[in-house]
């Protein structure tokens, strides 16, 4: 698992590179909110866009476990 943050000094400009995973393709805002908020709570969230329903995390294990363990919705 890559879990690192690198800073590059390029011509006086700072550039930050963080290894991890981009979550996308959420069907509903509710599902996006739930998962992004969970990622924030467990401290792996580094970037999010509510408008685009995408977020970036440094680790995905806890997110995957959360998805597996959450109660199934009745359809």
């Amino acid at each position: 698992v890559v879990d690192q943050i690198r800073l590059w000094q390029i011509e006086g400009e700072r550039m930050k590179a963080t290894g991890g995973f981009l979550f996308k393709d959420f069907v509903t805002a509710e599902e996006y909110d739930n998962l992004a908020n969970y990622a924030d709570e467990v401290g792996v969230l580094v970037w999010r866009s509510d408008k685009r329903r995408m977020f970036f995390v440094t680790r995905h294990e806890q997110i995957a476990a959360y998805l597996r363990n959450r109660p199934k919705k009745l359809t």
Binding site: E13, R14, M15, K16, A17, T18, G19, G20, F21, L22, F23, K24, D25, F26, E31, Y32, L35, V46, W47, F56, H60, I63, A64
Partner: peptide, 12 residues
Amino acid sequence: PKAVKGVLVQCD
């Protein structure tokens, strides 16, 4: 949702 492995780059 889909999870894609990569490097987040934040810059000017």
